[in-house]
Simulated scan of single mutants.
Amino acid sequence: MTYYESTGHLLLTPVDRDAPARAVRLRELGLGQRPDTGLDAFARRIAEALQAPYAGVNFVGEDRQFFAGLHHAPDAPLSGYPARVLPRDHGYCPHVVVRRRALVLEDVRDFARFAGNAVVDESGVRSYAGAPLTDGQGMVLGTVCAVDVAPRRWGTEGLATVKSLAAELADLVRAHRDAARAG
């Protein structure tokens, strides 16, 4: 769904009507507040599976995004990416969260809506693959994503991989939540 301002201009960051409820849910689950070594390891798996220099597990709140899991390859080019905390209008994860479906951008500069994003100029991001991370109640909590500073073809295999990893992590989050309730 495409959202427009009342002036008819295309919004570069989508309106997120679920953000307040998501912020409450993230607090209930204890997610998105601090780095997590387990999620850092999962981000490394994402990077390895997609052969990407950067990957993350990102929880999107009302005003910011928090990468509780983050990985960058030791030989990755130096850039402003990755950062644990980003404003909500930076990057592409907020689009995935609002759309509730995966997003693959082989070259972000090919799309006017995405080319003007701050992560392009500030961090050199050129390619993105992300999928929604959904809890057991259907709430999209954030994303799993991979990023590159060069354009790249993710292909249908890359799309399937990022979606599969998001589903796997969603299962782990549910198991963690269930264990915490039982204990």
Rank of each mutant, 00 (worst) to 15 (best):
T13W: 00
Y4W: 06
A23S: 09
A131D: 02
V15S: 13
M1S: 07
A129T: 09
F111M: 14
A43H: 06
A21K: 11
R25W: 15
L31P: 06
A160E: 10
A146N: 03
P77D: 09
C93T: 09
R174S: 11
Q65S: 00
F111L: 15
S6K: 12
V140P: 14
C93R: 08
A115V: 07
R64M: 06
T161S: 08
A118P: 14
L29V: 03
L86C: 10
L105E: 10
W154A: 07
L172G: 10
P53M: 02
A23K: 05
D148K: 01
Q65Y: 00
I46L: 02
A112E: 15
Y128H: 01
Q51S: 13
Y92R: 13
G61Q: 05
G142D: 02
H176N: 15
V120W: 14
E122D: 11
A41D: 08
M1A: 04
T7P: 04
A21R: 11
P53K: 04
P77R: 12
A49K: 01
R27Q: 11
T161M: 09
L103A: 09
A47D: 11
S123I: 07
G138N: 03
D18I: 12
T143F: 01
R109W: 01
V85C: 03
F114N: 09
E5L: 07
V104D: 14
E5M: 06
H72N: 06
L39K: 07
D148W: 00
V96G: 05
V120N: 06
R27T: 05
A131F: 00
G138E: 04
L105P: 06
